[in-house]
Nucleic acid binder design. Sequence first.
DNA 1: CATGAACTGTTATAAAGTAACAATGGTCAC
DNA 2: GTGACCATTGTTACTTTATAACAGTTCATG
Lengths: 182, 182
Amino acid sequence: MVTSRTTTSGTATSATPGGAATASFEPHDHAHCAEDARASVEAACAARGLRLTPARSFVLDELLASHRAMTAYELLDALAAAGMPSQPPVVYRALEFLVSNGFAHRIERLGAFAACTCGPQASGTAHRAAFLICRDCRHVAETAMSRPPRSLAEMAGAAGFAIERVVIEAEGLCARCRDAAQ
Amino acid sequence: MVTSRTTTSGTATSATPGGAATASFEPHDHAHCAEDARASVEAACAARGLRLTPARSFVLDELLASHRAMTAYELLDALAAAGMPSQPPVVYRALEFLVSNGFAHRIERLGAFAACTCGPQASGTAHRAAFLICRDCRHVAETAMSRPPRSLAEMAGAAGFAIERVVIEAEGLCARCRDAAQ
DNA sequence: CATGAACTGTTATAAAGTAACAATGGTCAC
DNA sequence: GTGACCATTGTTACTTTATAACAGTTCATG
Ligand SMILES: [Zn+2]
Ligand SMILES: [Zn+2]
Ligand SMILES: [Zn+2]
Ligand SMILES: [Zn+2]
């Protein structure tokens, strides 16, 4: 679980355990953040009889190294650099494992992947989340989404449409990148 | 503008002009629906000095032929079948024109494109929308989204993140496809 | 007509994702 | 143990999606 340090300003949601509004864009002790996330994935795997094999473990660590969304081929390059097998299916299978078990998310807007920062309470099951995505540095922040926006739910109800998954991704510029652009 | 026929049941949003909750999944006079949409694009182009060139016009008609999201390469095949130039840039340029002017939308989840059904009030400018996407038949329904969901806006505010665009896409099964699957 | 801006035609290539199948390796019934 | 089974791996080949680059054309406007 990410150590969430809410700012003094603004209407930030509180860092209640379980609420999980983590602030990847704000300064934090990331080494600790990554260690905790890794530990919670290991715990979830142990609890559910999942195997965190070398390729899966490597891809997870690579994603946890920052809050930047990475493409499958960036991960593949990292695998190759580490001397591990690096054909596309290797990384897509690892990602399939991580995503389907809720340890990572696919960012549709980028065709890229980011480690989950929801913490242990959500680990082990694919869950709903919404994302803030910086179009410049590709860093990603995640927040839990309880249920589909009302207008969508209403439309679905009227049409007899069964919603199974909702993608919510906000693209923009993070504070750091905005400053860097003067 | 699409002739919106709200069902008698449910909590459907009303078909107020400007509200634009169109029901692509419900039976409607689609020939009329496509003609109207086409006319409103032509009007917007005339009003804003945009050129609806043959390739753009063809791609628009192809998208308007149904509410199914189409990939760039499906459109390319249609161009080829019509004896028009059919290299990838042809269709990507047409789509860039249609999307940036708000006449079509990219469905991120599918890497595909659908004509806009928001009607004339929104035509001519890229606008916010949320989508219902059938994972089976790929038909798409669009509804206007006023502003980002609150939890995202709060998170963005706390982090100093400037949201520029929000992707909201709900994937699931439409009524017809659910019935077809027994 | 000259000029520039927008658009077209074309070649080539990059980036993202999947199908298929033989081989390996744990786990469990017996 | 050992055979059967299932998940996982290694690998080849391929498909789908998207963009770079650049020469040529069209068209409104001065
Ligand atoms: Zn962190
Ligand atoms: Zn940034
Ligand atoms: Zn229609
Ligand atoms: Zn359907």
